[in-house]
């Protein structure tokens, strides 16, 4: 169904033609969250907690601050729910990740978080090796995959905060350029540029094996 918004459309009058996404929470629960129902909000947190932790830990590195900021992001969402505008937000997850991203960037800018991605003790594995280890099931290959993960984390740690945010939101959370631009407070053109450079930088660091223990 296409909503032809004319004059002053209702805030939640959204185009709803698209099939419901199984990875998004249902409209009824969203409506209850908007009515500040804590039970529904618990369901909302349970649905999206992994995504928020994933985003924050990749943006800021692992540590107790991730849980603190995740909690703050959800509470901000709870407070903002009465104003949640389904007509503007393509997905609830995008809206929530936008809140979490801004929170993370603000935390970095205010220097509230000193340490970034914790550095691994072992050597990096070049990205070229990924094809050989990604489908691994044996312990050795699994070890290789962990090494690769650490290498990617270290490479990401060398990105600027804005580049890292753009990279993570695009590669891991499937946000469009427009959605990322809104999340980081930038333009789509800037997002495209940052994303291109971030990918190039990541590939170069991993391809050239720069992410080695002695170079950290």
């Amino acid at each position: 169904m296409i909503a032809l918004a004319m004059g002053r459309p209702d805030a939640l009058l959204a185009s709803t033609r698209a099939a419901p996404r199984p990875d998004e929470i249902d409209v009824a629960t969203l409506a209850r969250c908007a009515a500040q129902d804590p039970v529904a909000f618990r369901a909302f947190v349970a649905r999206y907690e992994r995504r928020v932790f994933a985003l924050l830990s990749r943006l800021l590195g692992r540590g107790p601050h991730v849980e603190d900021l995740a909690q703050e992001a959800f509470l901000r969402a709870f407070r903002a729910f009465p104003r949640f505008d389904a007509a503007r937000e393509a997905r609830p997850s995008t809206w929530l990740l936008t809140i979490a991203t801004r929170l993370a960037l603000d935390a970095k800018r205010s220097r509230a978080l000193v340490s970034l991605v914790p550095l691994a003790a072992d050597a990096a594995v070049p990205i070229a090796a990924a094809a050989h280890v990604s489908a691994a099931t044996d312990p050795e290959a699994e070890h290789g995959r962990r090494e690769l993960g650490r290498a990617i984390a270290r490479a990401a740690a060398t990105l600027s905060d804005d580049q890292r945010a753009v990279f993570v939101l695009s590669e891991f959370h499937d946000l469009s350029h427009a959605e990322i631009a809104r999340a980081v407070g930038s333009t789509e053109a800037t997002v495209k540029t940052r994303l291109f450079r971030a990918r190039e930088h990541m590939r170069a660091r991993l391809r050239d094996g720069e992410e080695r223990p002695d170079e950290r």
């Binding site: 830990s57 990749r58 509470l75 990617i152």
Partner: peptide
């Protein structure tokens, strides 16, 4: 070579996180 960043494992939420947040939301609303 295709980019595969999935080996970068994120941090998982601890047990009971949703309960704690919901409780804080409830307390805040109260």
């Amino acid at each position: 070579m295709s980019d595969d960043w999935s080996a970068w494992e994120p941090e998982e939420p601890p047990d009971g996180f949703a309960d704690r947040v919901a409780e804080r939301a409830r307390a805040e609303a109260t």
